[in-house]
Simulated assay, not measured.
Amino acid sequence: MESLGVSSLQNLRALSALLNPQQEQEDEDCERQNPSAALCPGNIGPKPKKETPAVSSSFSNSKDIWTEEEVAEGSQFDDLDDARPQPEFEVIMKQSVGTEDIFLGLNGKDPSSMSCEALLVKVKLPDTKLADVVLDVRETFLDLRTPKYKLGLHLPHPVHSQEGKAQFFREKEELEVTLLMKRPLDFINRR
């Protein structure tokens, strides 16, 4: 009666020979050195071919090492040599709620961030005048610069960069930027 180990070894060799006839010669050479090390589940079947990564057409004629899609939005504003401090800021999610939402629940809104329509970014800017503030809003990035402060903020949710508003409160020395969020179902949710 054959032992289970010998039969299994013969079955693995036969299966390997069926799936990859060229590998048979290499296996024989390895078996002479160490018979048990030559056969394992990774040796069954054809060897995987090493694939070279596909090169996009934009790289074929260029010496660029990355495309614009690979660079995170807002990274062009990162200036490591700029010693200006980051001001205190706060990001608040806002939603429009009426009496029909509070008392009757007609619109199906809940307190979660999925029901929010806007982002409110409050930035404290002590000793700053409105004329000194430079604000640039992108879909996922807010860049604010003054002579004393610099804020590069990656937004937690994409926004409509052209539909926001900003207010500067001189007495509080605070800038409030309200940005409408881009939501997947905006065409349904907006009224």
Rank of each mutant, 00 (worst) to 15 (best):
G105H: 00
Y149F: 15
S36M: 09
L185V: 10
V159Q: 00
T128M: 04
K94L: 15
V123T: 10
I188L: 15
I188S: 09
V133T: 06
P126W: 06
L80F: 10
R170Q: 14
V121M: 03
F187V: 01
D64H: 03
K47R: 14
G74I: 03
P21M: 07
P35A: 03
D127W: 03
A118S: 14
E28Q: 11
N20A: 15
L4Y: 04
D29V: 13
V137E: 07
R32G: 07
L135K: 06
T146H: 01
V137Y: 03
V137N: 00
L106V: 14
H157I: 10
A83T: 06
L104P: 00
E176A: 15
T146P: 01
V71N: 03
S96P: 02
K49Y: 04
F59I: 08
E26V: 06
E31N: 05
K148I: 04
E26K: 08
I92L: 14
S3L: 05
K50L: 14
E68W: 09
R84F: 04
G108K: 11
S56T: 08
L120Q: 15
L144M: 15
L142D: 00
E171T: 12
G42R: 09
N20V: 01
R84Q: 08
K94P: 01
D143K: 07
F187A: 11
I188V: 15
V55H: 00
M93A: 13
K172P: 01
E28G: 05
R32K: 15
D186E: 14
S7W: 10
N20Q: 11
G5Q: 12
N11P: 00
T146F: 02
D136W: 03
H160S: 09
R190S: 13
R170A: 14
V55R: 09
P41D: 09
Q10T: 06
F169R: 09
E90C: 11
E70S: 14
W66C: 12
P53A: 04
P21G: 06
P53R: 08
L135I: 11
K49W: 03
L119Q: 05
N189M: 07
L119E: 06
S56H: 08
S115L: 04
N189F: 13
P46R: 12
E70K: 05
G98A: 05
V134R: 13
E139I: 09
K47W: 02
K165H: 14
L19P: 02
R145H: 00
A166F: 02
D79W: 00
S113R: 13
K182L: 12
E31D: 07
K182I: 13
D132W: 06
V55C: 01
P53S: 04
E176C: 12
R138W: 05
E88T: 09
N11M: 12
S113K: 13
A118L: 07
L130E: 15
K122F: 01
R138M: 10
A118R: 14
R170F: 08
P46C: 07
M93L: 10
E70L: 09
L135W: 02
D186N: 15
L119K: 06
K150H: 08
D110P: 03
A118G: 03
L185F: 13
D127Q: 11
G45I: 01
L12T: 09
L151R: 02
L9H: 10
L125T: 00
G45Q: 05
C116K: 08
